[in-house]
Structures are given as C-alpha cells and as structure tokens.
C-alpha cells in the first residue's frame, strides 16, 4: 500500500542553515513541505525515502538563500486497486461503514459492497450482516473499533486547492455551507468470503 514516487523540486535553503549539511537541510525542507499532505493523483505523502540527485545550487540576486534542484524519492500511501487492507471501523452511517487506518481516515464501504444481506440498525447506528445458517439468521454487528479486512475497489482525488471568488452568488452559497471535502478518498468492499471483521473468519 506504500509506493515510492520519484519527484523533482527546487528547494530554497535560507542562509542561516548554511552551517548544516546540505542534505540534512534539504531533507527537512522536503518533509516540511510534503509530509502528511495529499498530492493530487499521487497519494498521501508519508516521508522522504532518499535523495537521488542534487543539481547545482543557485543564489539569486536580492535573496541570500540557495536554490537547489533536487531529485528524490518519497514514500507515499497509495494502495493499488484490488489490494487487501486491514483497518479499524471508525463508525457507521446510512452511507456505509467508515474505516480508518490510523494515519488515513477517508475510507468508505458503501452499503451495496457490504456482505449481503445487510441492514442498518437505526437504533444503534450500526450496520449488521444477517448471516444465514441452517439454524437461522445470525446478526453480525459491525461495531466501532473492530478490525476489518477490505478490498480497495475505487479511489478518488478531489482538487481542494483554493479558487478565487467566481461570482457573488457562489460566494454566498459557500458561506452558508463551508463543506470540507476530503482530498483523497478510497472506496472499499467486503462482499467476498474472507472479507469483513477479522473475528468473522478466525477458525475459533
């Protein structure tokens, strides 16, 4: 679920950091810029893996800082489609089951991708798998905090970069609803044998 992504960036090092090793300052600057951020169509950046190439550094007129073009590799969270992941249930809602990996929260398993037949318990706000056996149906609850194994079936990136005010109308509507959209969401599925809460499939 982690990938190494090769990137190139120009890093600005302010003069008061010249006493340090260039590689250390660059690593720090890159981590400051990228760590814990979602890059559009790339994934959630975790930390710097290594620096593969440093080009010549330049000092521009009017600015004492050095500018260095850096080729580096970054560890990025970006599971491939159909990958199996294990997470914890963060909560249930009529939209489906929300799953968290700890460092990444925007995972949704929609109702149609749950083990069927499934129903939403309004009173307890929890999804239930009505598992049928010869002795009758068992209700398997998907409680918050349980570990769950799921398959990644879809991903979507939303460009959340700020945009200028397009019109007065749009302004007023956005003021009413300051909806915060997740920049990167995964859609999961557990509609296969072996998927779902880990406790469902252990032999004991």
């Amino acid at each position: 679920m982690f990938v190494l992504v090769e990137m190139v960036d120009t890093v600005r090092i302010p003069p008061w950091q010249f006493e340090r090793k260039l590689n250390d300052s660059i690593a720090e600057e890159l981590n400051k810029k990228l760590a814990n951020k979602v890059m559009y169509n790339v994934g959630l950046c975790i930390c710097l893996f290594d620096i593969t190439k440093l080009e010549d550094a330049y000092v521009f007129p009017g600015d004492g800082a050095s500018h260095t073009k850096v080729h580096f590799r970054y560890v990025v969270f970006h599971p491939f489609l159909d990958e199996i992941l294990i997470g914890k249930i963060k909560g249930c809602s009529p939209e489906g089951v929300h799953v968290s990996l700890g460092f990444f929260d925007d995972i949704l398993i929609p109702p149609e991708s749950l083990q069927q037949p499934a129903k939403f318990d309004e009173a307890e706000q929890v999804w239930v798998w009505e598992y049928e056996t010869e002795e009758g149906a068992h209700d398997l609850y998907m409680d918050t905090g349980e570990e769950i194994r799921f398959r990644v079936v879809d991903e979507s990136f939303v460009d959340t970069s700020p945009t200028g005010p397009s019109s007065a109308e749009a302004m007023s509507s956005s003021e009413e609803l300051p909806k915060k959209e997740a920049p990167y969401t995964l859609v999961g599925s557990i509609s296969e044998p072996g998927l779902g809460l880990l406790s469902w499939w252990t032999s004991s």
Binding site: N31, K32, A35, N36, C45, I46, C47, F77, G102, F103
Partner: peptide, 23 residues
C-alpha cells in the same frame, strides 16, 4: 532549533509506525 515546523512529519510517522507495528 531547526526541528520546528515538523509537526506534520511527526504526526504522520507516529501514526504510520503505530499501524505497521500491529502488522
């Protein structure tokens, strides 16, 4: 004094380590 402004890195590495330690 240089390690200021690294809260993002600290958060993500802590959470990721926590996740992988369980695997």
């Amino acid at each position: 004094k240089h390690s200021s402004g690294q809260q993002n890195l600290n958060t993500i590495t802590y959470e990721t380590l926590k996740y992988i330690s369980k695997t």
